[in-house]
Amino acid sequence: MSDEFVTRSLDEIRFWSRIMKEHSLFLRLGFRCEDTQLIKEALEFQAIFEDIERRAHAYPSNTDPQTIRDFNTEVHTAVTRIWAFKRKVLGLILTCKLPGQNNFPLLVDHVSREANYFRNRLEELNTGRLEPLPDAIIDENVFFLKIMADHAKFISHLLDPSERKLVEQAREFSNEFDTLMFQAVDLSSMRPQSQTVPLLSQFVDENRVSVKSLRDFKKTARDLIEECRIKSIIHPLLADHVFREAERFLFILDMFDQSLSGVKVNKREILF
């Protein structure tokens, strides 16, 4: 269990610290030139999470668990700070105190939800308090399906309006994932009676098919943006960022599918 704890902790931190670092960059690029204090804070968070990411990659898999437990606590503090920063920015936008800035309110809320998810994962790892598998399946899907729906909305709004076909495809994905997310919420509200293997298996299978399609769309968009073959204001790193998050969701869905199919995979092995 100590090896699993170290491996899972480092995997989570390596993935999500990069995400937090990139969030800092995206927020900074959306601020106005005169927002010097916010820009300064975003730069500081970018440096903090770049350092955390570097250190996470430097730890070997046989690191002493207590060292990693302490590292998790340190990272948790940093994530709590960036979560508070993101919520502060959201408040400023919603009270019209940053007129003319370019960060969508939904995007700022989105990145704060991801910070809160990361923070909760670190707490789970350090305390060892893990959800039963049926609860994990529903809760992970509710979280990630909304993330995927948000991504589709961002893509449709950041593509040039003249890219009509791609914009329409992104809008269709937005509607599809809104529907899937609401289905997940319905399944969640029916707990525990809804947590049968047949229902959860169908739930995972249906979502996985849709996530694969969205993942492939994101990959195509990322490649076209990198090759300057379509018109958009999407930063190439943002295109890759949302692709990696879809890949992450697919990995989790695959693990859930294996477990529900009878392969000996449990919540601890999937998320711990």
Rank of each mutant, 00 (worst) to 15 (best):
F15Q: 04
N175W: 15
D51S: 09
V6C: 04
R215M: 15
Q193V: 13
V108F: 08
T63C: 12
F154S: 03
E124N: 13
F45S: 00
I82F: 02
A58H: 11
V209Y: 15
P236L: 05
R129V: 15
Q66S: 14
P161Q: 12
E12V: 14
E247A: 11
I13M: 05
G30N: 04
F177C: 05
R268V: 09
A136K: 00
F49Y: 12
G91K: 03
D216W: 05
A78N: 08
L200R: 01
A239Y: 00
F26K: 01
R129W: 12
S189R: 08
K231W: 14
I155H: 03
F182D: 04
W16F: 12
T80D: 10
E176F: 09
A78K: 05
S9E: 02
P99G: 08
L94D: 08
G91M: 11
E22N: 09
S17P: 12
R113E: 04
S162I: 14
M190R: 15
S2R: 08
L125E: 01
A42C: 07
S261F: 11
L253V: 05
R171D: 11
F71Y: 11
K88S: 13
L271G: 09
L38M: 10
V263Q: 11
A58T: 05
D178P: 00
K146L: 03
Q195F: 11
V89W: 00
D257Y: 08
S259I: 02
A170R: 00
C228L: 15
S261R: 11
N120V: 08
S174P: 05
R222M: 09
W16K: 02
R113W: 09
F31H: 01
R81H: 09
Q183S: 09
F173E: 02
F31R: 00
K88F: 08
E34T: 03
H110V: 10
R32T: 12
F203S: 01
F251S: 13
V242C: 03
P236V: 06
L29R: 06
G30E: 03
L199M: 13
F26V: 10
F26P: 00
V209W: 15
R32I: 10
S2A: 15
T63F: 12
H76K: 15
E226K: 15
R18D: 14
P198S: 12
D254W: 08
I13C: 03
L130M: 10
M1Q: 11
D178Y: 09
L238K: 01
E163K: 07
L98F: 04
I93Y: 00
F49D: 00
E176G: 06
F154V: 03
F249C: 02
F5L: 06
L187G: 05
L38W: 01
T127F: 06
L145Y: 03
N72K: 08
F173S: 02
A239P: 05
A149H: 04
F85D: 00
P134N: 06
F217Y: 13
E124P: 04
